[in-house]
Design a binder for these strands. Sequence first.
DNA 1: TCAAAAGTGTTCTGTTTACACCCATGG
DNA 2: CCATGGGTGTAAACAGAACACTTTTGA
Lengths: 231, 231
Amino acid sequence: MDLNHYREEDKVLLAVDCIIFGFDKHHLRILLIKRNFEPESGKWSLIGGFMKREEDLDQAAVRVLEALTGLRDIYMEQLQAYSKVDRDPGERTISVAYYALIDVDSHQFDGPRLETAQWFKLSEAPDLIFDHNDMVEKAVARLRRRALKRPIGFELLPEKFTMRQLQTLYESILDKKLDKRNFVNKINSLDVLIKLDEKDMTVARKGAYLYTFDKEKYDRKVAEEGFNFKI
Amino acid sequence: MDLNHYREEDKVLLAVDCIIFGFDKHHLRILLIKRNFEPESGKWSLIGGFMKREEDLDQAAVRVLEALTGLRDIYMEQLQAYSKVDRDPGERTISVAYYALIDVDSHQFDGPRLETAQWFKLSEAPDLIFDHNDMVEKAVARLRRRALKRPIGFELLPEKFTMRQLQTLYESILDKKLDKRNFVNKINSLDVLIKLDEKDMTVARKGAYLYTFDKEKYDRKVAEEGFNFKI
DNA sequence: TCAAAAGTGTTCTGTTTACACCCATGG
DNA sequence: CCATGGGTGTAAACAGAACACTTTTGA
């Protein structure tokens, strides 16, 4: 059997596509670009590009994201490979999806790219090319699972945030209303937030306490394989 | 930027590697083959091979598994892609890992392949080539997560099985002893097993009732997004 | 003085855990 | 008749869900 012999003609192009989730204090968003090249020029798609021979997929994802949006040092995680034979009508390509979570407000992308890259509310995102809708759906499912397993927010929230912002983030990820008291009790019982003396006076006349994550405690607890964050 | 232009020299070989879990009524096992080709000839590895241009990854995984073991109609699920630049010392290849669960006893592989393919107890598996150890570790983690989320066993157990066999399966997946009464109560509360009138008289003087999965109920419940199977 | 959002605890219910004895049978 | 593994229930601890009023202060 020639299973184990390289056949030059079986080589394929490997692409990466990035599902970038953002949160802007009110809504969960996703970053898309309008394609200005064929195929499917003019349509919306995920940020993507080809892996080069001298890099691995993780590196390709980081490079492609920066090239198209100027966003730097974004940590991305691999989701899975998409390989249907006819997924890209142009050329046989296999694409590996990556996803990341970032705080919209502290990651402005630079001017010239603004026209092509744009944040959409998750619920209002346009139809995407190829199998990109599937990729997004899968990424959302992963985000939800992850949110239920441990408190996320490090990446999606600014350094300092109010309890309500964290709750709103969870509500938009899980797409359901949560009980304020139960949420606060749950978060506090996890003991990974530091309550600051500072208040955000813009959100209410009374003001709202600001919190930060206690990264050390958080990492320790995640490592100890605990948490289980059911809401 | 040439992000969006195909470069012939960036094409790569895409491989699949299969982590096949089996259960033989006592132990969780994994299927490995001894390589009789370079590189790393003589060492143990996962079952793997290259994707052809005219098929997708899922199809490649099924084909490769059958070619090397004679195992047919095995449902496999994609884990993730492995793409370190130097992962295969021979040629630049990216490998996508797949995993499957099967019942060892009802899936004998055919004679001539017996010498290369072999079931190992998970705890006694040899060191593997390339990044295959990582793949296995990841697959085990996935298997555990899945076992905790819903009752698995359809695939890993024979059609009819005893409660104790199901418990042993869970104990070997989770690698810890479970309480017999709590386990039975939990399983029964899920209401997806059918208790047969038949007993397996080989396991104890008293005999042990045989069960089958109620596939319809099971599928309905999984679809209703419920279950949460904490043990 | 009032509108708007923040902050805060308790009770109830369901789930998980811990735990020990009798049963049926083949040898 | 006894050794072996199968089969069964209950109580205590814990986690999750439901639920309403007071506080602060800027306009």
